Simulated scan of single mutants.
Amino acid sequence: MTVVKWGRRALMGGMAAAMLTLAAPLAAQSIAGGYRVEGRNPDGSAYRGTVAIGEQGAMVHLSWRVGGQSYDGTGTRNGDIIWIDWGAEYPVVYVRMPNGELHGTWANGRALERLIP
Protein backbone atom coordinates (compact mmCIF):
# COMPACT_ATOMS: atom_id res chain seq x y z
CA MET A 1 0.00 0.00 0.00
CA THR A 2 2.89 2.39 0.74
CA VAL A 3 4.26 1.82 -2.76
CA VAL A 4 0.89 2.74 -4.27
CA LYS A 5 0.71 5.96 -2.26
CA TRP A 6 4.27 6.88 -3.22
CA GLY A 7 3.48 6.08 -6.85
CA ARG A 8 0.39 8.30 -6.74
CA ARG A 9 2.36 11.15 -5.18
CA ALA A 10 5.10 10.79 -7.78
CA LEU A 11 2.49 10.74 -10.54
CA MET A 12 0.72 13.82 -9.14
CA GLY A 13 4.02 15.64 -8.64
CA GLY A 14 5.07 14.79 -12.18
CA MET A 15 1.73 16.01 -13.56
CA ALA A 16 2.02 19.26 -11.61
CA ALA A 17 5.55 19.82 -12.93
CA ALA A 18 4.41 19.11 -16.48
CA MET A 19 1.52 21.56 -16.15
CA LEU A 20 3.89 24.28 -14.90
CA THR A 21 6.28 23.58 -17.75
CA LEU A 22 3.47 23.84 -20.29
CA ALA A 23 1.99 26.98 -18.68
CA ALA A 24 5.28 28.92 -18.58
CA PRO A 25 5.59 29.39 -22.39
CA LEU A 26 2.00 30.67 -22.57
CA ALA A 27 2.67 33.45 -20.07
CA ALA A 28 5.82 34.47 -21.93
CA GLN A 29 4.26 34.31 -25.40
CA SER A 30 5.55 37.08 -27.67
CA ILE A 31 3.38 40.12 -28.29
CA ALA A 32 5.49 41.37 -31.22
CA GLY A 33 3.64 42.06 -34.46
CA GLY A 34 0.95 44.19 -36.04
CA TYR A 35 -2.36 45.08 -34.39
CA ARG A 36 -5.53 47.00 -35.14
CA VAL A 37 -6.23 49.58 -32.47
CA GLU A 38 -9.66 50.70 -31.26
CA GLY A 39 -9.88 53.22 -28.48
CA ARG A 40 -11.79 55.87 -26.64
CA ASN A 41 -10.21 59.24 -25.76
CA PRO A 42 -10.73 60.89 -22.35
CA ASP A 43 -13.47 63.07 -23.92
CA GLY A 44 -15.35 59.94 -25.06
CA SER A 45 -14.56 60.22 -28.77
CA ALA A 46 -13.56 57.01 -30.54
CA TYR A 47 -10.46 56.39 -32.62
CA ARG A 48 -9.03 53.60 -34.78
CA GLY A 49 -5.66 52.87 -36.30
CA THR A 50 -2.77 50.44 -36.30
CA VAL A 51 0.03 49.56 -33.90
CA ALA A 52 3.31 47.77 -34.48
CA ILE A 53 4.93 46.14 -31.46
CA GLY A 54 8.57 45.14 -31.19
CA GLU A 55 9.85 43.13 -28.27
CA GLN A 56 13.34 42.33 -27.03
CA GLY A 57 13.35 40.52 -23.71
CA ALA A 58 11.37 42.58 -21.21
CA MET A 59 11.71 45.74 -23.35
CA VAL A 60 8.79 46.67 -25.60
CA HIS A 61 8.46 49.32 -28.33
CA LEU A 62 5.11 50.48 -29.76
CA SER A 63 4.45 52.60 -32.84
CA TRP A 64 0.87 53.86 -33.19
CA ARG A 65 -0.63 55.27 -36.40
CA VAL A 66 -3.95 56.93 -35.55
CA GLY A 67 -5.85 59.52 -37.58
CA GLY A 68 -2.88 60.45 -39.74
CA GLN A 69 -0.63 60.96 -36.72
CA SER A 70 2.17 58.78 -35.36
CA TYR A 71 3.12 58.11 -31.76
CA ASP A 72 5.99 56.06 -30.34
CA GLY A 73 6.54 54.60 -26.92
CA THR A 74 8.83 52.24 -25.07
CA GLY A 75 8.38 50.30 -21.90
CA THR A 76 8.63 47.02 -20.10
CA ARG A 77 6.73 43.81 -19.82
CA ASN A 78 6.24 41.67 -16.76
CA GLY A 79 4.31 38.56 -17.81
CA ASP A 80 0.98 39.74 -19.19
CA ILE A 81 1.32 43.36 -17.96
CA ILE A 82 2.90 45.93 -20.30
CA TRP A 83 3.77 49.53 -19.27
CA ILE A 84 4.50 51.98 -22.10
CA ASP A 85 5.87 55.51 -21.69
CA TRP A 86 4.75 57.44 -24.76
CA GLY A 87 5.67 60.94 -23.60
CA ALA A 88 2.41 61.77 -21.82
CA GLU A 89 2.03 62.39 -18.09
CA TYR A 90 0.74 58.83 -17.55
CA PRO A 91 1.81 55.59 -19.26
CA VAL A 92 -0.37 53.25 -21.25
CA VAL A 93 -0.88 50.06 -19.24
CA TYR A 94 -1.97 46.94 -21.11
CA VAL A 95 -3.00 43.49 -20.00
CA ARG A 96 -2.53 40.62 -22.46
CA MET A 97 -5.78 38.68 -22.71
CA PRO A 98 -5.97 34.89 -23.35
CA ASN A 99 -7.09 35.54 -26.96
CA GLY A 100 -3.93 37.61 -27.67
CA GLU A 101 -5.61 41.02 -27.51
CA LEU A 102 -4.06 43.74 -25.38
CA HIS A 103 -6.53 45.77 -23.30
CA GLY A 104 -5.20 49.02 -21.94
CA THR A 105 -5.88 52.29 -20.24
CA TRP A 106 -4.16 55.63 -20.60
CA ALA A 107 -4.67 59.21 -19.35
CA ASN A 108 -4.68 57.83 -15.78
CA GLY A 109 -7.53 55.43 -16.58
CA ARG A 110 -9.76 58.01 -18.31
CA ALA A 111 -9.14 56.52 -21.77
CA LEU A 112 -9.33 52.94 -23.05
CA GLU A 113 -7.59 51.08 -25.85
CA ARG A 114 -7.78 47.61 -27.34
CA LEU A 115 -5.11 46.13 -29.60
CA ILE A 116 -6.38 43.33 -31.81
CA PRO A 117 -3.88 40.98 -33.51
Rank of each mutant, 00 (worst) to 15 (best):
G57M: 08
A58T: 14
W83N: 12
Q69F: 13
V92G: 02
Y94R: 03
M19W: 08
A10K: 05
L112S: 09
R77H: 06
P117W: 08
M15L: 11
R8T: 15
R110F: 07
N108F: 07
A52N: 15
G57H: 06
I84L: 10
G75C: 13
R114L: 03
G34C: 06
G68Q: 10
G57I: 10
I53G: 02
S45Y: 01
S45D: 09
Q29C: 06
M59P: 02
L11S: 10
D85H: 11
G44S: 04
E101H: 12
V3Q: 11
I84N: 05
V66F: 06
A52T: 15
R48P: 02
V51S: 04
A28L: 11
G54N: 06
R96Y: 03
A58Y: 02
A10T: 13
T76Q: 03
L102Y: 07
V92S: 07
N99H: 07
G7H: 06
G34D: 15
S70R: 13
W64G: 04
D43W: 09
E101N: 11
N99L: 08
E101G: 01
Q56K: 12
G73V: 07
W86K: 01
A46K: 12
A58P: 09
G67P: 03
G79A: 12
S45P: 04
A58N: 14
Y35N: 01
P117Y: 08
W83Y: 07
Y94K: 05
G54Q: 13
V92K: 00
N41Y: 05
Q29R: 14
R40F: 00
L62A: 10
D85M: 11
N99D: 15
T50M: 04
G33I: 05
I53T: 03
G7T: 10
A32D: 02
P25S: 09
T21Q: 00
V93H: 01
V60I: 15
A32Q: 07
S45G: 05
D85G: 10
P91C: 04
G13L: 07
G68D: 01
W106Q: 00
G49Q: 10
W6R: 15
G33E: 06
V3K: 14
S70T: 14
H61Y: 10
W106N: 02
A23R: 05
T2G: 09
R110E: 12
N108E: 12
M97C: 08
L62C: 09
P117A: 00
W83C: 11
D43R: 02
M19D: 09
W83A: 05
G33S: 14
W6K: 15
S70V: 12
W6M: 12
P98E: 13
E101K: 04
Y35L: 05
G104S: 04
G39Y: 03
A52G: 13
S30K: 04
G75F: 08
M59F: 03
Y47M: 01
Y90S: 13
W64N: 05
V92M: 06
N41T: 03
L115G: 08
R110C: 01
W83P: 00
I116D: 00
